[in-house]
Write a protein that binds this DNA or RNA. Structure first.
Length: 423
RNA sequence: GCGACCGUAGCUCAGUUGGUUAGAGCGCCGGUUUGUGGUACCGGAGGUCGGGGAUUCGAGCUCCCUCGGUCGCCCCA
């Protein structure tokens, strides 16, 4: 590589080969499953006014100022590359009058951008699949959404992850719990880790999932959300869990699973690899595979009327790491022009095969002597060779092991051509 | 923002206590066998050893800076 070849931007990736096939497999599976649950496809712009995300994040200063890709356009507006789907979907819901479709089940996928140091399973441009139900305040919506996530993961072949589930209660429950946590941790502030002392002021709920040894002894006895739940909130959570049981979705209570932003209410969840599993190993410290929750307060933050909503998102790269290598499709037909004089005939048959829907490759470049070898190396199901031997056109067919019905069809089609060409 | 490790051909890597023109395998290109052949053999292209500076008679190898990568911490909408 020349030293003046421009380099890719830090944290971006060029995906190719088995990785790209795994990526495509994730997206294709998501598209199929989303239709089973009747979620409708939506496309949003990859950038919005910075305000859209800033208001959605409740002006969480660190995140807004340091972790978003923001820039000024020529008109002087501050724009931001979307760091998540939810805010843009909520904005679209409001500005397009999608209220008329409520309750609305939406699915989308595409690139997102966050200004972070890259590490395993974490990039500056990354990709997610996303599902949201807007305008449905019933626990059945949470259940349906989670059942879809569960089925998706299973259809991807990812079995060693478990749904971790918690409730944050309604607005009042949540505030009471938060206050109790602050009081509890403030009493032992000096014994907490440095990070957690800071969290106490900025984001006390986060102390609960601290990785620091110094904090661990205090976590078990910390106030529990269950002691602060209103009757309604408790009933809501019970409806969700019994709905999951009925739908056959396995779950595990995770009392320390929290969301930092105020607009989250009730259900919060993450699918996390089981300890010691292959998936846990594959993901390093970025362990959540799919996460989401109920965000009944968000749409109001964006200036809409109070609208309940629940959703999840999952990183395509992370899922792709868990589905394993996906090989390229089998080459169905390889056609070789072993002699320059037969090249146009070979090209014609290639065109016919492709029009009939067969995956076909032409080998007609480089050393004539080696074209056949290259074709064999591509491991086709059928190989057709166009050659000239002793001044005579010779067309040969080689049939290899077949592993799919498509290959049988290709063979049948080419057999016709074979007999025709021999007349 | 902080920390650890890494950076030699397109890819995977070797390169002895610093010592002549920097190597291998795979891949790529070409040649040989008048051959039912994914083979074998021969040859070729391709590297200012991430970049800059320092030490030295001499640096891929030592030191400093810088850039990039990987993994972790913080953060995680």
């Amino acid at each position: 590589m020349s030293k003046n070849t421009p380099k890719a931007i830090r944290g971006t990736q060029d995906i190719f080969g088995p990785d790209a096939e795994a990526f495509a497999f994730v997206v294709e599976t998501f598209e199929r499953v989303r239709k089973l649950y009747r979620f409708r496809r939506a496309e949003m712009p990859v950038f919005e006014k910075t305000e859209v995300f800033a208001r959605s994040l409740g002006e969480t200063t660190d995140v807004v100022s340091k972790e978003m890709y923001s820039f000024e356009d020529r008109g002087g507006d501050s724009l931001t590359l979307r760091p998540e789907f939810t805010a843009g979907i909520a904005r679209a819901y409001l500005t397009n009058g999608w209220q008329q479709h409520a309750p609305l089940k939406l699915a989308t996928h595409g690139p997102l951008f966050r200004y972070e140091r890259p590490q395993k399973g974490r990039y500056r441009q990354f990709h997610q699949i996303d599902a949201e139900i807007i305008g449905a305040g019933e626990p059945q919506a949470d259940v349906e959404l989670l059942a879809m996530a569960d089925q998706l993961l299973k259809e991807l072949g990812i079995e060693d992850v478990t749904l971790h589930l918690n409730t944050l209660g309604d607005g009042e429950s949540r505030e009471a719990w938060r206050a109790a946590l602050v009081e509890y941790f403030r009493a032992v502030k000096d014994e907490l880790s440095e990070d957690s002392q800071e969290r106490l002021e900025k984001n006390p709920l986060r102390i609960l999932d601290s990785k620091d040894r110094k904090d661990k002894p205090f976590l078990a006895d910390a106030p529990k959300i269950d002691d602060f739940l209103s009757d309604e909130a408790r009933a809501f959570f019970e409806a969700v869990t019994s709905g999951l049981d009925a739908a056959g979705v396995k779950w595990k209570r995770a009392e320390a699973l929290v969301r930092g932003l105020d607009y989250y209410r009730h259900t919060a969840f993450e699918f996390i690899p089981d300890e010691g599993s292959v998936s846990a190993d594959a993901l390093g410290s970025q362990s959540t595979v799919l996460g989401g929750g109920r965000y009944d307060g968000l749409i109001e933050n964006l200036g809409g009327s109070a609208t309940p909503a629940v959703g999840w998102a999952a990183g395509i790269e992370r899922l792709a790491m868990l589905v394993g290598d996906r090989a390229d499709d089998l080459l169905e037909v390889a056609i070789v022009a072993e002699h320059a004089a037969r090249e146009s005939e070979a090209a014609e048959l290639v065109a016919r095969c492709r029009r009939r829907g067969f995956q076909t490759e032409l080998f007609a470049t480089g050393s004539p002597r080696k074209r056949f070898d290259k074709a064999r190396k591509a491991e086709p199901a059928v190989l057709v060779s166009f050659d000239v031997r002793e001044g005579k056109d010779t067309t040969k067919f080689a049939w290899f092991e077949s592993t799919s019905g498509r290959v049988e069809e290709a063979k049948a089609f080419l057999s016709e051509f074979q007999s025709a060409s021999e007349i």
